[in-house]
Design a protein around this nucleic acid. Sequence first.
DNA 1: GTCTATATGAAGATAGAC
DNA 2: GTCTATCTTCATATAGAC
Lengths: 211, 211
Amino acid sequence: MRKAIEHPTGSRRARRGDAKRRTILQAAKAVFLKSGFGGTTMDAVASRAGVSKMTVYRHFTDKEDLFAGVITELCEQIIDDKLEKLFEKAPRQALRGFAQKMVSILYAPETVELHRIVVAECLRFPKLGRFFYDSGPDASITALANYFARNKTNPKFRIVDPRRSAEEFLELLRGYAHLRVLLGIEKIPTRQDIASRIDGAIRHVLIGTGK
Amino acid sequence: MRKAIEHPTGSRRARRGDAKRRTILQAAKAVFLKSGFGGTTMDAVASRAGVSKMTVYRHFTDKEDLFAGVITELCEQIIDDKLEKLFEKAPRQALRGFAQKMVSILYAPETVELHRIVVAECLRFPKLGRFFYDSGPDASITALANYFARNKTNPKFRIVDPRRSAEEFLELLRGYAHLRVLLGIEKIPTRQDIASRIDGAIRHVLIGTGK
DNA sequence: GTCTATATGAAGATAGAC
DNA sequence: GTCTATCTTCATATAGAC
C-alpha cells in the first residue's frame, strides 16, 4: 500500500476509542470484501455505516487509507490463538489438531474473501502481499516448522528439511479445493474431502501410517 | 462473464481473418494483464494498439467483450501440448517429465498474471472461475489422474484414489512458492527449490524412494 | 472502416451550513 | 462533528466527418 499499512490515520488510542470509527471500519470491511477495491464506492460504505460520506472522510483521509485500515485489521485477526499449544500431544494427534485448526481458518469465508482481495490488489499496493503472507501463511508455516525441527530426530517423522516439510504439509491441506473455493466454483469442501485431505498430509510427514 | 466467454464478438472465421482485430487483442492482453480489469482503460488499449478508440469499439462491443476475448485466448493457450505423451516412459522419468512441464507452465509470467486477474475478477464474471479452472488446473489433474488410474495396481505407486493423488502431486508442485509469486513477494523460485519440490511430489506418490 | 470530438455518467473528494 | 449539496475528474461509449 502506498501509505504504511501498519498505520492508518490516527493514533492507536484514537483507533480504539472512537466508536464511530469502528462502525465505519466494520461497514467498509463488508463492502470491500464483497466488491473489491475498485467495486467499492465511498457512498456505499457511508450508506452501510449509516453516516454521511463526509464523516467517512473525517476519519480516513481517502479510500486507500480506509482500505489499509480494513486489511490491517483482517490480517491481524487471521491467526488469533497461540498455535504452540496444539503441539503438546502425541505426534499424530498433534498434527491432526493443528490440521483441523488450519483448515477451519483457511476455509472461513472471511479468510477466503481476504485472500481473494489481496491477490487482486497486491500489484496496486506493493506492501500488501507481504503483509498478508506474513500474517497468515508464514505464521502457520513457521509454527509447524519449529515443531518439525524439534522432532527432526524422532523416527516417527519423515522430515527432510523442517521448513519444506511444513510447507508441504500445509500445501496438502490447502490444495486445489482451496483454489476452487477461491474461484467461486465450490462453496465449502465436504467433511469427507477435508478428512481425506488431512490424512494425506499426515501420511506425507509420518512414516508407517499404512497405505 | 456476462456474455458467453466462449463467443466474443464475431464469428470464428472473422476472429482469425482480421489482422487488426488480432493487433487489438494483443495490446489488450498486455494492458489487462498488467493493470487488471478496473485499471485498464480503453484509451490505453487503443493507444498501445496504435488505433483509435473507435476502432476498438468497432471490433468489440464493450470493455467486457474485449476482456472476454483476451481471457478466452489466454485460457485456450495454457495447456498447448498433448500431455499424454509425457507418460510413455518409466514411472519415475514419466513423473519427472510431467512435473517439469507443469512447473514451467505454472510459473510462466503470463500464467501467473492470468491466475491473478482471474482470482480478482471471478466474482464480477461468474463463468470466469470455472472456465479458467477447466482450462488449466483441471486439465492437468485429469491427465495425471488417468495415468494413476492406469497404474493403480502397479506396486511402485502409492495411490489411494487416482484423482486425489493427482491433486496432491500437483499441489506439492504448486505450493506456497506459487502463492509467494502470486503475491509479488518472490520473482521466480530457484532451480534448487523447484528440484526439491519435484522430489517431494514424486516421493509422495511412489514408494521406496529413499527417505 | 477509421478518425476527431463530444456526450454521459459515476465516483472520489470538498465547501460551507448547523 | 456531522450533514447536504456541489465540484471535478475521468473513463465508457457515441455522433458525425472523411
